[in-house]
């Protein structure tokens, strides 16, 4: 079989031999948040389906989102979304061939992390302010 003769070959050193760095962590977080959002979108579709169904089912789903576990999930979803979004903008900048200077890369990594936390908190404060 095709895949079999590759499985026993020695592997070159991988991620674990490198000292963890912020830029590396941000790259890993971009992927992890992407995967988290992949499954999180299910909640969004669930909410839409319930809204299209009937009042009773909509109430159950809203009840879930307003329970503290639902809020925690949505808070995590918000952060993952903003982190992945800002990380994506970083990648789009790199796609234009700009921003590869090490100081810029380091700054972007910090801005990505700080920006995601600040914007998530701002959005939730705004959300509570709008709904109250």
């Amino acid at each position: 079989m095709m895949a079999d003769n590759t499985s026993r070959r020695p592997l070159s050193p991988h991620l674990q031999i490198y000292r963890p760095m912020l830029t590396m962590m941000m790259s890993i977080m971009h992927r992890i948040t992407g995967v988290a959002l992949y499954f999180g979108v299910l909640l969004l579709v669930w909410w839409l389906i319930s809204a299209a169904s009937n009042d009773h089912y909509f109430g159950i789903v809203e009840g879930f989102f307003f329970h503290w576990t639902g809020r925690l999930l949505l808070f995590g979803f918000t952060w993952a979304l903003i982190h992945h979004g800002l990380g994506g903008l970083r990648h789009l900048l790199w796609d234009t061939g700009r921003g590869f200077d090490l100081r810029v890369v380091e700054w972007l990594a910090r801005a990505n992390l700080a920006g995601s936390i600040v914007l998530t908190l701002a959005l939730w404060i705004f959300g509570y302010w709008v709904r109250s």
């Binding site: 969004l44 809203e62 903008l89 959300g127 709008v130």
Partner: peptide
């Protein structure tokens, strides 16, 4: 890349839609 660029405005609209309707009557 195409969808990444499109996602920027579309996701902002989507989040805005969700925030303005969470807790609203159906």
């Amino acid at each position: 890349r195409l969808t990444a660029i499109a996602n920027v405005p579309l996701t902002i609209l989507l989040v805005w839609f969700v925030i303005s309707h969470l807790g609203s009557p159906r």
